[in-house]
Simulated assay, not measured.
Amino acid sequence: MKLILPLLLAATPALSDSTTGGKTTECYCTDRNGDRVEMGETICLQVDGKMFMAQCQMSLNNPMWRKVSDGCLSSSLNLPQPAVDAGGVDAQI
């Protein structure tokens, strides 16, 4: 059992980097604008008029986008309207 544990630990791959010829190759995805997106990040993609959430993942040693869910997450703030009567505010301050 003591012999198997070091072999299992040595067999685990690096998270998202590989080494080729002594140089580290960083793996990442790019979005529509060519901006870098790190492994595991999720963004909203629009392809052929359809919008969906996609995550940057590895497949056969290549970075790729994997669809996570239909539609995109969004948020909106319902800000209250300011009071019209500001009579309680001292203009001299």
Score class of each variant (00 low, 15 high):
Gly71Ser: 02
Ser74Met: 10
Leu7Cys: 07
Pro82Met: 08
Met51Asp: 10
Glu38Ala: 06
Thr25Ile: 14
Gly34Thr: 00
Met64Pro: 03
Gln92Gly: 09
Ser69Gln: 13
Val84Lys: 12
Met58Arg: 08
Leu60Ser: 15
Gly49Cys: 01
Thr12Ile: 09
Leu3Phe: 06
Pro6Phe: 00
Thr25Arg: 14
Leu3Trp: 02
Asn78Asp: 11
Gln55Glu: 14
Met51Thr: 09
Met39Asp: 01
Leu77Gly: 10
Arg66His: 10
Pro6His: 00
Ala83Arg: 11
Met64Gln: 11
Leu77Ile: 14
Thr20Ile: 15
Gly88Lys: 11
Ala14Gly: 15
Asn62Arg: 15
Cys27Ala: 09
Ser75Arg: 14
Met1Val: 06
Ala10Gly: 05
Gln55Pro: 08
Ile43Glu: 02
Asp31Cys: 05
Cys27Pro: 05
Glu38Val: 02
Leu60Lys: 15
Asp17Leu: 12
Glu38Lys: 11
Pro6Met: 01
Phe52Tyr: 09
Met53Leu: 11
Met51Trp: 07
Ala91Gly: 08
Ala14Lys: 15
Val84His: 07
Ser16Trp: 09
Leu3Tyr: 03
Pro63Leu: 01
Ile4Arg: 10
Gly21Gln: 05
Thr42Ser: 11
Cys29Pro: 04
Ser75Cys: 10
Asn33Lys: 12
Leu7Val: 03
Cys29Tyr: 00
Met53Asn: 12
Asp90Lys: 03
Thr24Asn: 02
Ser74Cys: 08
Leu73Thr: 09
Gly49Thr: 03
Cys56Gln: 04
Asp35Asn: 12
Leu15Cys: 12
Ser76Asp: 07
Asp90Ser: 12
Gln92Glu: 14
Met51Tyr: 09
Leu5Glu: 00
Pro82Val: 09
Cys29Met: 01
Lys67Met: 04
Val89Ala: 08
Ser75Gln: 13
Gly71Asn: 05
Gln46Arg: 11
Gly22Met: 00
Leu73His: 15
Val84Gln: 13
Leu8Asp: 01
Leu15Ser: 10
Lys67Ala: 01
Gln57Tyr: 08
Gly21Leu: 07
Val37Pro: 09
Ala91Thr: 09
Gly71Gln: 03
Gly49Ser: 01
Thr20Ala: 11
Gln55Val: 12
Val68Ile: 08
Asp85Gln: 08
Lys50Pro: 10
Arg36Cys: 00
Ile93Asp: 08
Ser74Lys: 13
Leu79Trp: 10
Ala11Gln: 01
Gly71Trp: 01
Asn61Tyr: 10
Met53Val: 03
Cys56Leu: 04
Asp35Ala: 12
Thr42Val: 08
Lys23Gly: 03
Ala10Leu: 11
Ala83Phe: 05
Gln55Met: 13
Asn78Gln: 14
Ser18Asn: 12
Gln92Leu: 07
Leu8Gln: 05
Asp48Gly: 01
Leu79Ala: 15
Ala91Met: 12
Cys27Asp: 10
Asp90Phe: 04
Gly49Ala: 02
Asp90Glu: 13
Leu60Gly: 11
Thr42Asp: 02
Asp85Asn: 13
Lys2Ser: 00
Thr30Trp: 03
Ser59Ala: 07
Ile93Val: 12
Val89Trp: 08
Ser69Val: 02
Asp85Gly: 00
Asp85His: 03
Pro82Cys: 12
Thr25Ala: 06
Gln92His: 06
Ser59Cys: 02
Leu60Trp: 13
Met39Glu: 04
Gly34Cys: 02
